[in-house]
């Protein structure tokens, strides 16, 4: 049924991450953790998958000696998100 939907985005957590990043310049790992309510492990895994697909840019650094991960959506990611939203809207129209 959902064969046209991007499997990378058709997943609750990954879709949440991309939706959060679409409206901001950049967001820290902890911001994503707080807003998605996911576990650290699961969030890391999903962030890596999005990174491997070049949907997001991940920067690792330090702040006050603590590791700091910052994520940013890429043009590829924005494009994929727009296509996904279009496809979803298409399904909703068919239902009506």
């Amino acid at each position: 049924m959902f064969k046209d939907l991007d499997p990378l985005l058709h997943n609750q957590l990954r879709l949440s991450i991309i939706s959060l990043l679409i409206g901001v310049e950049s967001a820290e790992f902890n911001f994503l953790l707080e807003k998605t309510g996911a576990t650290r492990g699961n969030l890391s895994v999903q962030i890596n998958k999005l990174k491997e697909a070049s949907y997001i840019d991940v920067k690792k650094g330090f702040r006050n000696n603590y590791p700091l991960t910052t994520c940013k959506i890429t043009p590829v990611g924005i494009d994929a998100f727009e296509k996904y939203v279009e496809a979803i809207s298409g399904y909703l129209r068919k239902e009506d």
Binding site: H10, Q12, L15, G23, V24, A27, K35, T36, I88
Partner: peptide
């Protein structure tokens, strides 16, 4: 899917 998108965009 739409609910997630709306919710997340609204929080950020």
């Amino acid at each position: 899917s739409l609910r997630i998108i709306h919710e997340m965009i609204a929080t950020s």
